[in-house]
Design a protein around this nucleic acid. Sequence first.
DNA 1: AACAGGGATGGTAGCGCTACCAACAGGTAT
DNA 2: ATACCTGTTGGTAGCGCTACCATCCCTGTT
Lengths: 373, 373
Amino acid sequence: MRNSPARRASPIGQMRRGVASSNDSEVRNRSRRGSGRPTLADVAGLAGVGSITVSRALRDPERVSPELRQRIAAAVNELGYVPNPSARALASARADVIGVLVPSLTNNVFSEVLRGIHEGLGDCPLQIQFGNTHYSDEEEERLLRVFLGQRPSALIVSGIDQGPTTRQMLEEAGCPVVQIMEIGPDPVDMMIGFSHLEAGKVVARHLIDVGCKRIGFLGARMDPRSRRRLAGYEAVMREAGHFDAALVTTTISPSSVSMGVSLFHKALERTPDVDAVICNNDDVALGVLFACHRAGLQVPAQISIAGFNDLEMMEVASPSITSVRTPRYEIGRRAIAMARAAIAGKRPQRTVVDLGFELKIRESTMRPAVLAL
Amino acid sequence: MRNSPARRASPIGQMRRGVASSNDSEVRNRSRRGSGRPTLADVAGLAGVGSITVSRALRDPERVSPELRQRIAAAVNELGYVPNPSARALASARADVIGVLVPSLTNNVFSEVLRGIHEGLGDCPLQIQFGNTHYSDEEEERLLRVFLGQRPSALIVSGIDQGPTTRQMLEEAGCPVVQIMEIGPDPVDMMIGFSHLEAGKVVARHLIDVGCKRIGFLGARMDPRSRRRLAGYEAVMREAGHFDAALVTTTISPSSVSMGVSLFHKALERTPDVDAVICNNDDVALGVLFACHRAGLQVPAQISIAGFNDLEMMEVASPSITSVRTPRYEIGRRAIAMARAAIAGKRPQRTVVDLGFELKIRESTMRPAVLAL
DNA sequence: AACAGGGATGGTAGCGCTACCAACAGGTAT
DNA sequence: ATACCTGTTGGTAGCGCTACCATCCCTGTT
């Protein structure tokens, strides 16, 4: 019941027999090897051309005369020919695969990036080979090694803090490499993202502007990007003379809404006088909002909340939550576009692209006076 | 700067010259084809065995004597040999690829499933080939066609409502097929999920039990699974004599928290007397919670809310939200386990697995009396 | 002692495609 | 008329691996 390709193949075999040398095809039908599916040679036989011409017509139609092109298209259609990517990869020593390494799948930031990557691909015949590093350098190195074994057409990796071995492998990969999410000095090849340090600064400045002084920082899963946001916060707080190490509450445990609740409780214990919290992402911010609601703390009258990433729900939360809009989807799309351009030999003029970010100011950080309007 | 594989390959080439016939290797070095990386034959030369023995040692070590196995392992290590998956796929007419089709990446339900799939894979040498159908039958069919062109080892598809062409392609795929998320009659091959109809019934019954009568149903992105949950709701409501078509507010637009807000507003307009809403997922439920908060409606005193999926945040929301816990991660893990077993020829005895679900009753649907305790 | 049986090993011939070169037509420059 | 392009087509030889046999050796049996 589960196995009919052999049956399906037989009409094709007969078709072939009528066109190619009959001896040939009979031998082929008896053979136990082979996939039983039409090949380039079958298409070529039916169209009455050489197989290499079919190959060209499929990959680079410009180089084949319109007449042959049409005959070949008809033959492809009739046989239901689908190219064999393994054979192509083997013959050309280059797989139509783009390796993508991200640190997490749970995190909806990266699912947005992945969506951008998939949609940026459109229907071009590239495959995405996807790997989850779980925020581990060793795992990243292992996965990269596996990916390189396939001779990918390009690589997309998250962040700019690869370990030395990983860094060297990327440099020697012999294919375009795009580092995403962040920008920094010394790219391996290309880079697209924004400055997390600046983003941290902007949020902190905003809260100082609206009159907050005891501004806490809550961070779960303190990856390198979160640490840079924290560094931006710290720089601005020091400059304003407000910095206090007790205001910073972080954990390396994974981020979640409930982790936001517990980080907030811990912060309240350490610094009961906090008048604002900056969260390293929106999950944590949402947890803080819920915790405030449960504790009867008025937002923003008694405490202001700022998040990071600007998930869609931030705008409709009650109160709506100030957050930094990050171009996650756009990063995915543009990363693929850059990779494709580089594969096609047209390296973009700008190899380091700063997509920036946007502070979305909402109710959770508005001054009472403004709210009253 | 970007291109060093050629340089890296040269010591390997020299190594090879010392072992294999020197004439051979010189020709090989001059050739412009080939990846420049060590091959099975190189490993075989260094270990002093036939290449087929190396192949066996790598795929099925039991069949090679311990002594040779060790020599081969040493040679692999020394050369840094990595098998070429394309060549393997071509020669064996079978790629070590599992095709996975899901309808959405935005939806965190499916990112959990994907996480389960990736983690269920462990470090076995299978690759996941992933496709996003965007809830479109045509797109599903197109992607399936692409996947089948690679002769995957197994296929994982979402839902049980494939179109006739897709259904036929799956039946003729000649590889194990796992349908996930749902169970139903007439599986293509294997199936893992739970009954959405039952889940819909259980939630509706619970709300009736706590004394609600005008129970609304809010649904965004009404895919087949959501429709079956709605059918369960409708059946129970009819049985209780509470059904009213005006209580059902749905849209095919994508689901989101803000869509939950607007669906709730629409429902309030049509049936201002609703005393509870069942949402087809937790995003919508969260939107309802925010809308209630903004409108000053007490939850659950004035209105009860139930969600679906039991995202982590439901438990810490304020009030916490009743939801149906669905085994998303587990579905991914088990689906891969079933696929791997089938690939290995050990088809599981149970080919249709019902993982069930669990109604998590929380504050948002508690009777005032219970809350007062 | 001859033989069958089984486990370990190797040789060979592809898998389906593309890189490379060769061939040839039809034009343009010499 | 010859040489020399340029553009289209085809032949051939692999890419690196595995399926399929053949071979070898070592048992155990008659």
